[in-house]
């Protein structure tokens, strides 16, 4: 699901009457450890409203350097909304209000001095559906460096593009046709192109919103490998529908339910020893 595209009114799923099945134990506070030693991004007591309706309730979560944080949960649980708040992609929805504290390296994301353009250059994002620009492969990757003036000359730009494509594991497949339109690639290639595009700007954090949901299993495997490699240099937060994916790629996992962060812990302990009943029900497949 893609929160930004669906109008707030249609988000009825968020506020369905809780049934006996779903709410077995009231969510009073987050279970587990939401903080890390060396946080890159921090969220404290975050509430998000779409107009009258509240989508996120009092969520606190850290994203550390060189780690992958996976966010899982049933549809409409607010995980994508939370992710999009981390680089202020929700700004484009007029009815969306964010309260609480969010910061990058201690700098308030919603403070008056913060420039969303600069923020997004530091916190990149990869979307659910691959969304290459209607440009050539080269121009897709070169777009970010160009607008930010990261390359002094054509040679430097070439180098950034090549390097990014290599790191995204796409270079060998497209090196002969960098002038071909990016929209002509296969789905998996398009998504890797979008990742290459994101790392070409040298961000510090990469947010991924269900990056594999539109891809076939082989393409998914390649992206997952890539995520693991990227962890060496970036802090990564990934929203995913697939528990297996979360288990494979992440170091920590956060479980969201009806806009609340139910449990967050080492991926291992979340999947082997969930402490909250809701989490357990979800990972054992009782709903979701």
């Amino acid at each position: 699901m893609n929160d930004i595209l669906s109008p707030p009114v249609s988000r009825a799923g968020l506020h369905e009457e809780p049934t006996a099945n779903t709410v077995l134990q009231e969510i009073k506070a987050t279970v587990g450890t939401a903080t890390v030693e060396n946080p890159k991004m921090q969220a404290r007591n975050v509430d998000v409203h779409y107009g009258e309706k509240q989508a996120i309730f009092d969520v606190s979560l850290d994203i550390g350097n060189n780690e992958v944080v996976a966010m899982i949960g049933p549809s409409g649980c607010g995980k994508s909304t939370f992710l999009r708040c981390l680089n202020r992609m929700n700004d484009s929805i007029p009815s969306c209000r964010v309260s609480g504290e969010m910061s990058l390296d201690g700098e308030d994301l919603y403070g008056p001095d913060l420039d969303p353009v600069l923020l997004r250059a530091r916190v990149g994002m990869v979307f659910q559906k691959p969304n290459p620009f209607a440009k050539s492969i080269y121009d897709n990757v070169a777009y970010g460096p160009r607008i930010h003036g990261l390359a002094g000359n054509r040679g430097e730009l070439d180098e950034i593009v090549t390097e990014s494509l290599k790191r995204a594991g796409l270079f060998d497949e497209v090196k002969d046709r960098l002038d071909a339109p990016g929209t002509g690639l296969s789905g998996g290639q398009q998504q890797r192109l979008c990742i290459a595009r994101t790392i070409a700007v040298s961000p510090e954090v990469i947010l991924m919103d269900e990056p594999c949901s539109a891809l076939d299993p082989i393409a998914t495997a390649r992206i997952e490998e890539l995520i693991d490699e990227l962890r060496q240099n970036y802090a990564i937060a990934i929203v995913t529908h697939s528990m297996q994916q979360a288990a494979r790629v992440s170091q920590r996992t956060a479980y969201f339910h009806l806009g609340k962060l139910v449990e967050v812990n080492d991926t291992n302990s979340v999947f082997t020893n969930p402490q909250h009943e809701l989490t357990e029900n979800y990972i054992t497949g009782r709903f979701g």
Partner: peptide
Amino acid sequence: VPQAMRDGSYALGSTKSETVRKVVIPA
């Protein structure tokens, strides 16, 4: 022009006019 394309551009840290001039209009 799909909103996803604009989002892609914003997520790279482009301003609105850059998105319009370099992504939306060419598309």
